[in-house]
């Protein structure tokens, strides 16, 4: 269990302020946020690698705020893997084994199991600069895991990899976490990555934590327009609320309730909006007429922008559906979505 309380870090111009977070033992926790929001600095603060100005960090009820990094038992793996260039892969992996009391025989066995499991036995005698991205990453992971840390911090472990590799490595990370039962904290700005690996997450922005919760809650129930935008909600509008309706400038939408703490926004995920040519007959649900103002090719689907009243909606359409509808800019369409799809905050 990691408990961070009101942590403050000041690094030149950059500040982390009022970071309060608790990460359960053995959890897979994701730290998300745009570039420059302070995710890596927070990881380094947990590992003891940056000076802390205020607050405290506890690991398993023990105060580690002032403990030097080598005494914390917290492993870190950077985005660029930071393998020692003057050592072979084997030298890198065994670097930490001489510290702390370890049974030599057990360590040796651990080493070969680890190397086998990660499939890097063929590169052990090579230097890092000759390795591929995937090999570098496995070597860095082995180096961090072999010293049996209590917590493993992963700083965007997948972002430097070829997209084709990512899924394999993602699955591998999940398996390793499952089999070791160690707490993993992963920094990512890829939502798919967080969704597939982590159970809980925090969203950071500008050196502060904006929302903490289960991945599903952050994805489905963002508490601020920043988080809503960050998790890809896209259709975020200011609204006033009356009984089960949210009033936008020129139309009202059926919703499931009011914002809990007096907010004034609604958000709808693009994939929850159905685009059709006619108004449809469903009585229960929202149907908004609009005009297509833009179609953006996103590879496997189209992102369609529809202006309705003063609002600009964003929805997604499969390529075959777009073809069937002969979708084009300037066409009149209808957007329909159930009240459950409208998130209020």
């Amino acid at each position: 269990m990691i408990e961070i309380n009101d942590l403050a870090v000041c690094l030149g111009e950059f500040r982390l302020r009022g970071i309060t977070l608790s990460i359960e033992e053995g959890a897979f926790f994701a730290l998300m946020g745009p570039t420059g929001s302070g995710k890596t600095v927070l990881l380094e603060a947990i590992a003891g690698l940056v000076p802390i100005q205020g607050g405290s960090i506890h690991l398993k009820q023990r105060d580690i705020t002032r403990l030097p990094p080598e005494k914390r038992g917290i492993g870190i793996m950077y985005q660029d893997y930071a393998l020692f260039p003057h050592l072979t892969v084997a030298g890198n992996i065994t670097f930490g084994l001489r510290y702390g009391a370890r049974d030599g025989h057990k360590a040796e066995k651990h080493f070969s199991t680890m190397v086998d499991a990660l499939g890097i036995d063929h590169v052990l005698q090579r230097y890092p600069e000759t390795l591929s991205g995937g090999e570098l990453q496995r070597a860095a992971l082995a180096r961090a895991l072999i010293v049996e840390p209590r917590v493993v911090l992963l700083d965007e472990p997948l972002s430097a990899l070829d997209p084709n590799f990512r899924e394999d490595i993602r699955a591998m990370l999940g398996e390793i976490h499952h089999s070791l039962g160690v707490t993993f904290v992963i920094v990512t700005h890829d939502f798919a990555e967080a969704l597939s690996l982590a159970s809980r997450a925090a969203v950071m922005h500008d050196g502060t934590i904006r929302q903490v919760g289960t991945i599903q809650d952050i994805f489905r129930k963002p508490t601020s327009s920043f988080v809503a935008d960050f998790v890809g909600m896209k259709n975020i509008f200011a609204a006033t609320f009356e009984q089960n309706a949210a009033r936008l400038d020129q139309f009202a939408l059926q919703v499931m309730g009011r914002p809990v703490n007096g907010g004034g926004h609604i958000a709808i995920r693009p994939e929850d909006i159905t685009l059709s040519l006619s108004a449809g007959t469903a009585l229960d649900g929202n149907c908004v007429p609009g005009v297509v103002t833009g179609i953006v090719d996103q590879g496997i689907f189209y992102e369609v922008r529809v202006s309705a009243g003063d609002q600009l909606f964003c929805t997604v359409v499969t390529k075959s559906a777009a073809f069937d509808l002969s979708l084009a800019v300037g066409m009149s369409v209808h957007l329909s979505f159930p009240p459950q799809a409208v998130h209020v905050f």
């Binding site: 380094e44 590992a47 003891g48 690698l49 030097p68 990094p69 080598e70 914390r72 917290i74 492993g75 870190i76 950077y78 660029d80 930071a82 020692f84 260039p85 670097f95 930490g96 510290y99 702390g100 180096r143 961090a144 010293v147 840390p149």
Partner: peptide
């Protein structure tokens, strides 16, 4: 970062300087 990783692996400041 190389020094930071070495520290996280258990190396003291002095050991990190000598080995990295």
């Amino acid at each position: 970062r190389l020094e930071k990783v070495a520290r996280s692996l258990g190396a003291s400041m002095w050991s990190t300087f000598v080995r990295i």
